[in-house]
Simulated scan of single mutants.
Amino acid sequence: MANTIDTGVTSTLNGGGSAGLNAGQSSALRENFMTLLVTQLQNQDPLNPMDNHQTTSQLAQINTVSGIEKLNDSLSEINGQIDAGQSLQASGLIGKGVLVPGNRVLLSQGEDGEVTTTPFGVELQRPADNVTVTITNGDGQVINRYDVGAVESGVDSFSWNGKTSSGETAAEGAYNVSVEATYEGEPVAVEALNYAVVNSVSPADENSDIQLDLGAVYGRVGLPDIKQIL
């Protein structure tokens, strides 16, 4: 549930590939085993033939190689199913707003003077008893600074009310967000997150994982970069 903080910031709290031989390699290795075994049988000394233990041992190795090949085929099929499932899930994000690593927030004004800003967020590695958010313009000038207070670890989303430090409405445009966090005076690792809309999804292939297109400004990101769905 969103609740308004006196500071002017609104917060919403939120709580591979297969290893081993590929099919071609394992098939070639199995052929080599068979060739070696047949050659040994053809050229063995009739007076001192290869004993059953040696033959059984080599046949067991052939079966092991065949088993590896079948296992790799099964793993490839499973990976393909996982990729297809992830692509299907990712396609459900098209048109939705997400928080990804970044520090951008946009402010716009309607004809009726209503101010709208895009959400932003923070990701904390551990709880902080003091979090400070600073809004700056493109020239690095501080527009406003808010003491948010204590924030739990994880991802939290916020919205800026669009006000400057003097209480006036800031001009339309893009602004930057920076975040500092401490616990008992010691710095806490924190990452700023910005809002973007998922335009399309590119399925995984042999060269890359699933990619989400966030538009010209934010480019493409992977599924692990999605920190929160809004």
Rank of each mutant, 00 (worst) to 15 (best):
T12K: 08
L47I: 03
N137P: 08
P101F: 00
V155G: 15
Y195W: 09
P224H: 03
L124E: 02
V197P: 00
E31T: 12
S108D: 13
E206W: 05
G219D: 04
L29Q: 10
G149M: 07
L93W: 08
D225I: 00
P224W: 01
Q44T: 05
S165Q: 14
E172H: 11
G92L: 14
V148F: 02
D6G: 07
M1A: 10
N103M: 05
G113L: 03
L230M: 08
S66V: 13
S91W: 04
N103G: 13
A181I: 03
N144M: 09
E114M: 14
K227Q: 06
P127Y: 00
L214I: 00
S27Q: 12
P203T: 04
L47E: 14
I78S: 12
L21H: 03
I143S: 07
V198E: 01
Q89A: 15
S57V: 07
T10F: 02
D6H: 02
V105T: 13
T117P: 05
N207W: 07
M34T: 10
A84C: 09
V198Y: 00
G154E: 09
A150Q: 13
S91N: 14
T116I: 02
R220K: 15
L47K: 09
E168N: 13
D147I: 14
A204S: 13
D129Q: 04
K70D: 14
V38R: 14
L21Y: 07
V98L: 03
A192Q: 05
T55M: 13
K70C: 04
Y146C: 08
G219Y: 02
D45S: 11
I94V: 15
Q44Y: 07
G110R: 06
G24Q: 12
R220Y: 03
G20E: 04
A2K: 06
E180V: 08
V201Q: 04
V100G: 00
G154D: 09
K227D: 03
Q25P: 05
V9H: 01
E69Y: 04
V38P: 02
A28Y: 11
E191R: 13
D6T: 10
G92N: 11
V177D: 01
Q54E: 12
N52S: 15
E186R: 12
Q228L: 09
G173L: 05
N63F: 08
S87P: 04
E114V: 09
L59S: 12
G154M: 09
A128D: 03
P101S: 04
T132Q: 11
N176P: 12
